[in-house]
């Protein structure tokens, strides 16, 4: 569990970035990632600018680097794929440290690695500085359809309840001598998942009953109104603005 307050990905703090309204942060992060992806992959220096801008933002958020590095592990499958690309890709070969590798593969690997890492870091920073509740409120303010936001909210709320149920079922299976190593046991696992689905479905019905009992009439009440200051908009725009310049540089400088 991460900070006491919210979610495993949330890093409790009171920095400028933590205090920015959530919807501005969401737009800012999305714009930044889109600009990173739009930067031509042959460019090198624009990526350094992207990274520097992001590092400054992380610095301003006072989220420890070690905290983010640990969570960057989710990127590992992509890193492995990127590392394979130069060896499996076709096209003209080139020499890298005495090994013959594919030139386009090398460029593709670099682009995948650079864009992927920047994207994951941005998402981690957003998650670390915004409570799940505020993220949902932010998405509502961005006019995402209410039903979608409610579904996400229920997911955040119940993922641990369902995971706990799955864990208890697994312990109960193991306690009766079950060991899921051979494919012969897959049907048992499939049935467990089926049971979990039915239980979750029934829980959904009970939650709905409890909501009706408290006067639910089809939509969740919007609970907070946020006044946005111009300085906050400018602070949120800073990151994508730098990225836009870097991306432009990458396009023109080609």
């Amino acid at each position: 569990m991460g900070a006491d307050h919210g979610h495993a990905l949330h890093y409790h703090g009171h920095s400028v970035i933590h205090r920015l309204p959530a919807h501005l942060k969401i737009v800012s992060a999305l714009a930044f990632v889109l600009l990173v992806v739009a930067t031509p992959r042959e460019a090198t220096w624009p990526y350094a600018v992207h990274l520097a801008a992001l590092l400054l933002a992380i610095r301003a958020a006072r989220v420890p680097a070690a905290y983010l590095m640990k969570r960057l592990v989710v990127e590992v499958p992509f890193v492995v794929f990127a590392a394979l690309l130069p060896f499996v890709a076709t096209g003209p070969r080139t020499n890298l440290l005495g090994v013959s590798v594919s030139q386009p593969g090398l460029v593709a690997a670099w682009a995948l690695l650079a864009k992927g890492t920047l994207g994951v870091l941005t998402a981690l920073l957003l998650a670390a500085t915004t409570e799940p509740r505020d993220l949902l409120a932010g998405l509502t303010r961005l006019r995402l359809p209410g039903q979608l936001v409610e579904i996400m909210g229920f997911m955040v709320r119940y993922v641990e309840v369902v995971a706990g149920e799955l864990r208890r079922m697994s312990i109960a299976r193991t306690s009766r001598g079950f060991d899921a190593r051979s494919p012969r046991h897959w049907p048992v696992l499939a049935r467990s998942l089926g049971t979990l689905f039915v239980r979750s479905y029934e829980r959904g019905e009970r939650v709905h009953l409890a909501m009706l009992s408290r006067g639910y009439a089809g939509s969740l009440p919007a609970l907070d109104v946020v006044a946005v200051r111009r300085t906050e908009v400018m602070a949120a725009a800073a990151l994508p603005a730098v990225a836009a310049i870097a991306a432009l540089w990458g396009v023109v400088g080609r």
């Binding site: 409570e131 799940p132 509740r133 949902l136 909210g153 229920f154 955040v156 709320r157 119940y158 309840v161 829980r203 009970r206 939650v207 009953l209 409890a210 909501m211 009992s213 408290r214 006067g215 639910y216 009439a217 969740l220 009440p221 609970l223």
Partner: peptide
């Protein structure tokens, strides 16, 4: 209701307690 996990579904305790009166 018997299972508080069925009753409490909002992201924070405050929001959940506010759910009923807000519906009013």
């Amino acid at each position: 209701f018997q299972d508080p996990d069925d009753q409490l579904f909002m992201p924070t305790v405050r929001d959940d307690v506010a759910f009923g009166p807000a519906n009013l």
